[in-house]
Design a protein around this nucleic acid. Structure first.
Lengths: 192, 192, 192, 192
DNA sequence: GATGAATGAGTGTTCATTCAT
DNA sequence: CATGAATGAACACTCATTCAT
């Protein structure tokens, strides 16, 4: 049982790495297999087809993000602090797992991210929605749609991580400015 | 000469439409050609190869965005008003040209968007950078890197247009909330 | 022992059903196994490989046909009547076992039906040859090669069953005409 | 134009030869291409997919048979003689074109020969139906459904050609007997 | 310049067969 | 004996690119 799961995990990890390095296109099933140390056919034991593999990666990714951020959410803190933690933890997670960030960024605007998939609930979106719902209930942030709020915040974190990576070797200074963005967003969404 | 340009334009337009409808994958050169009313081989008269075509589309797109937004920028207005116009015009442009928005969204996180390309200046980025530089100079917005500011704002506009399209038929109410996001961002970036 | 035979039978039956429904192509070993309620590997306990399975089905089928027709052959009747019974019983058998008819029809003209296999005697061909040999001996049918006669008659029964199935829902009237074919053939082969 | 048709013809001829030699299974598209002296991709210029190629072959084959037999049908002769010519010409055609006979024999009982295809009229079936309709009109053969009659006769010719090929090197004598089958069938269908 | 048939390397996928459990 | 995950050769098919017309 654990062997099976290990194999599925290693296929997903292999695909994640390849997608980050070569983009969605440069990721043939045969290469994923080779990288994962399995035969090409084996992938089809765990996934119906390549699309299903991509969706499988998405589901894995979404679960990992949720796990990391939710485990570090301390409900006893004031919401402002929880927000900054949310922001910091999500950023950290992406920086610790660049292949996940690379995949997620590409996935969101790809045709793989179908309407059907977006409509279905997923653990990460549910957590994020509930998180901002909480902030609204507690009167700490503006009464906006929590779905909109979570997309807004997550998109900004995504962008900033991307900018950081692009600027990595250029300007140390920018990193400080980028960290200011969280304040900027908080100022925007906090209740008046 | 103008015939040649017309043909190039129609190839680009055809590709834009197909990419929006079928994503980057579902856009073979032969289909672009058919859609544009030319032979497949003709595309190689105007573009070296498919990558060059995609880059060509990007350059076209970037020019169109810049033209639309810059033409509507009124330097005589106070910067706050210019910011809201910038936001509104960029949003309008994307909503008037969904295929451009669809392309741009996919392009930004794709492997086509190489480091080289990002390093090279382009008219739209230059305009946006100068725009926010202006706001800083005039003391109306915080002293942040204008490059960072423009990416931040543009990313948010992109996201919101995308959210609007996803929500189009669901919640009328959300559109109002989405329009509030511009205030939220302004509150974040305006000088204290 | 009987368990083993049961398992072999159920594998054969499963393959027969699948071949009738999906043709020779649409009949992977894994599907035969699933349909038979055994694991894919188990099939290789009973058959050396897929070709051997197909041959095994053929041998089973040929035995079943022979059993049905020979059991209903009454040697005490005049040969003309025996001929009509032969025709009727073979037709009935195919109509009761459409998957056998479907398999046999496909098998006969397939590359599985090798020269080697045709040269080897099989119970059904031997019975049929002997049957027509009998008719010749008794002076009731023309002095033709009994092998040729049996192929001729069997081919015609096969075709007629096939036509009946194609016409099943179209023309009731045709069925009567099709039943006349046996007279037509008898008129052809009976001794002058 | 004629070059294009030549290429299509050579693809069809190549596939016909391979199907006769290796059966339906042993006929990969790549081998058909190699045999025809074209690239694999070229086949898809002329046929949508492999199924379409098989159907294309069928249509070609059916046209060739019709052409050969109809060109040699002499309406001025008495129907009995026309029937014997029909039989002889069809037999000759198959013996001159063994790959067509091999293909047709396999095709008829294969899943490629769908209900849809059988329902659609084709030149050969139409000719054969009209031929036997003629015989009925002229009062020379029994009042049976001409569709049934033509299938019956064609099936018998097919079988006999097959038997001849199997027996080719064994018994010279049989050929004479096989030629008698036409009389046998004529005796069966002729008007009383 | 424009065409579109031809190319063939590359891709996703299937499936007969094996073998560790 | 039975299992079914794993294999990898083989397949159908796609598509960026070329080039003779």
């Amino acid at each position: 049982m654990s062997v099976l799961l290990d194999k599925k995990k290693s296929i997903i990890q292999s695909a994640l790495d390849l997608i980050q390095e070569h983009g969605f296109h440069g990721c043939p099933v045969s290469m994923v297999a080779k990288n994962a140390g399995v035969a090409a056919g084996t992938i089809y034991t765990y996934f119906e087809n390549k699309d299903d593999l991509i969706i499988g990666i998405y589901e894995h990714v979404v679960e990992e993000i949720k796990k990391y951020v939710s485990e570090r959410d301390d409900l006893s803190l004031p919401f402002k602090e929880r927000f900054y933690n949310y922001w910091k933890n999500l950023t950290n997670f992406y920086e610790l797992n660049p292949s996940i960030h690379g995949f997620y960024d590409q996935f969101l605007n790809s045709p793989y991210n179908s309407d059907d998939l977006q409509s279905n609930p997923n653990v990460w979106h549910e957590f994020a929605n509930a998180f901002f719902e909480d902030g609204i209930q507690q009167g700490d942030i503006k009464q906006l749609n929590p779905v909109v709020l979570s997309i807004l915040v997550n998109t900004n974190v995504n962008s900033i991580v991307r900018i950081k990576q692009n600027f990595k070797k250029k300007l140390e200074k920018n990193n400080m400015e980028l960290n200011e963005i969280s304040h900027l967003i908080w100022d925007g969404i906090k209740a008046d």
